[in-house]
Simulated assay, not measured.
Amino acid sequence: MSRSLRRGALAATVLTLSIASLSACGAGNDAATLQVKPDNAATSVGDIKIQNATVITQPKPDAKGPAVVSATLFNDGAKDQTLDSVTLDGGNQAELKPAKGSGKITVPAGGSVVIGGKGNASAVLASGREAVKDGDAQPVTFDFSRTGKVSLRAFVVPANSYFKEYGPAEVPQPGQSGSATPSGTASPSESASGKPSESGKPSEAASDAESAHAGH
């Protein structure tokens, strides 16, 4: 074999080894990437999968009001399941309401249900900040009619930024609202003094007085 042919064969071998090494590294990186889990609470038991489980508190640290549990529930089974309860560590149980009507929250067979956010089902914790603290990972248990209890640790976050649309309603502080008298409503003193009513007509007492005066 000539010197030029040997050089060509050597170059081809080096190129092949380089490509093989890069491919191995690529496969390793891809495999590692597949092991990375999203930064939210997710788990699955049987036919039930829970994703994006979060406990969302009031947007301000000193705000009064409830907290909520937000999550997406998937049912890969052939039969519907109902969500019977959502309980935090320590026994603090959420009040559950479906998106429409009343009764239990149903996760349809082969479908999903979103808990939290406008127009969706809800899970409200009445005690709010008394039960949870921002920054914690709070154990939460979802109890389903067929699968049973599914537990995971959900992050506790305030209703800011992305979580604003899924957070709880804030209870007004004293003096913020509810102190104003509804407009258009006559007070008792106005009716007694004979001033015009809401319709602008004289009161009955004023009309009777005018009639008596005209008779004299």
Rank of each mutant, 00 (worst) to 15 (best):
S112N: 15
V113K: 01
G117D: 07
G119W: 11
N120S: 07
N120E: 09
S122Y: 06
A123V: 01
S127Y: 00
G128M: 06
G128R: 05
G128K: 03
R129S: 10
R129G: 12
A131S: 08
A131T: 06
V132R: 04
K133D: 00
K133F: 03
D134T: 04
G135P: 05
G135M: 08
D136W: 00
P139D: 01
F142R: 03
F142T: 07
F142K: 05
D143N: 14
F144G: 04
F144S: 05
S145E: 11
S145A: 14
R146W: 06
T147G: 05
V150S: 05
V150A: 06
S151F: 11
S151R: 14
L152T: 14
L152E: 13
R153V: 11
F155R: 08
V157A: 14
P158H: 13
P158V: 10
N160H: 07
N160W: 04
S161Q: 12
S161A: 14
E165Y: 12
E165N: 13
Y166T: 08
P168G: 06
P168Y: 10
V171R: 09
P172A: 02
P172Y: 02
Q173N: 11
G178E: 00
G178M: 01
A180N: 08
A180C: 02
T181M: 12
P182H: 07
G184L: 13
T185C: 12
T185F: 15
S187P: 05
S189V: 13
S189I: 13
A192E: 14
A192M: 11
